[in-house]
Design a binder for these strands. Sequence first.
DNA 1: CAAAAAAATTGGCCAGACCAATTATTTTTT
DNA 2: AAAAAATAATTGGTCTGGCCAATTTTTTTG
Lengths: 251, 251
Amino acid sequence: MTKTVQTLPNTSPLRPAPAGAGARLYLQIAEKLAGRISAGELPPGSRLPAERDLAQSYDVSRQTVREALIALEVSGLVEIRPGSGIYVQKAAENRHGLKSSIVADDAPGPLEIMEARLLLEGDAAALAAERISNEELQKLKAYLQQMTLLVQAQKSTEAEAYDGKFHQLIAIATRNSALQSMIEWLWQLRESSELSRLFARKIQQQVAGPNILAHEEIYQCISRRDADGAKAAMQAHISEVTQAYLLLISD
Amino acid sequence: MTKTVQTLPNTSPLRPAPAGAGARLYLQIAEKLAGRISAGELPPGSRLPAERDLAQSYDVSRQTVREALIALEVSGLVEIRPGSGIYVQKAAENRHGLKSSIVADDAPGPLEIMEARLLLEGDAAALAAERISNEELQKLKAYLQQMTLLVQAQKSTEAEAYDGKFHQLIAIATRNSALQSMIEWLWQLRESSELSRLFARKIQQQVAGPNILAHEEIYQCISRRDADGAKAAMQAHISEVTQAYLLLISD
DNA sequence: CAAAAAAATTGGCCAGACCAATTATTTTTT
DNA sequence: AAAAAATAATTGGTCTGGCCAATTTTTTTG
């Protein structure tokens, strides 16, 4: 489960721009407006300047502004009312299911994410212990071995990537795509806010890569098809990571 | 947690149109194109007709087509390459976190959803038992009472609405917005595919509204601050609903 | 002062133009 | 005959100007 900048909900109020799309004027305008909304300059319910005024302000055509506004509308940030104007969507109206647009203060905090992972990945480990195929067990072992080598070689970034693969394979082994989606979402939330990124980075620096022993224990329990043991081991692992962070921030 | 047509990921490949937006030409064109993509007429990787051709086909201006394509781009359905064309995004590239665009065959099945709910809402009930405020307990009781009255009056649709509120309040009482988001997402997945809607509808018709005794049991455990009891009661409730469905489909 | 009418402002949609990027076709060279 | 280069065509990006419908604001009337 490699880190991606893509999230659902998007961490940026607007979908990440396609590669090289910086040149696209409408996207530039849309991002500027989204930034102003995120920054609070345009609070929910307020009206944006008219299309013609925005075109003048940004020195672009009215059509370019319209395209930018459509991007914002589709992203759920604004509501367009013909004859009336463009209004910033109230935050509650932006939310549809899992948030499509997390402003930093809306995002679950790192401790919430860890608690949710503790519960969900604990359950996932139990299901995986019951349902994992022998082939997947082999793969899990291979990821663990690779992780171990990379930690020994002090390549913590690459080791993290295998950490992600390890957890993702456990999610896959649950045979439940809803669980898989939610676990993936929780992993991606680590990039969802500055606070969560800081959390992940501090852990990474301090612990110098994943805890091999904890992953070994998880693997052993799953390979024994010990659901309760796998759940306990996964929850112990995630608790330990959370405790490590709490120690860090209390300094 | 009332049923909404809004989901995250959206059940429609495009965000639900704003009220009265049927008149918006660009949305009509976008929906038509999204429909063709969903229907498989435009498979992933294929190129759409050029802007000018689409304008001619739909008898609209090129600008309207461009606006529609921007809506699709922002929704993750297409990729626009200047000078080259408009390409349907591969399904894997559409996925970012929790799916932003579920095609029916991609959506978690109803049994997966129920299993995920069993795990997650069980955990949520336990946390709620520990953390719920007295005010929220009063509210929970009020929702239960309202639900009871509505079931007795055989107003099952309205009773369902209070069922949703009941479960949502438990999610809120966990004090964990990540859990809240995921539980909300799972509820909305009930609308995510024809199969899931069928599942929910069958349960509604057969059981004639929510099971009051099960909710009463959940409420009693939470009010006693009995975390293990609340989890067991919630999981028993969700298991029972799942079993009811299995009986239905085995006929 | 309130109601109605008129004017202004707002977004929606259109047509045409020109530019830049990419692809396809033709011409030239080997 | 094949490959490379040049040219043409097709593609999307952005702009300008125009007109219509919806809403809001201002003015006029009672």
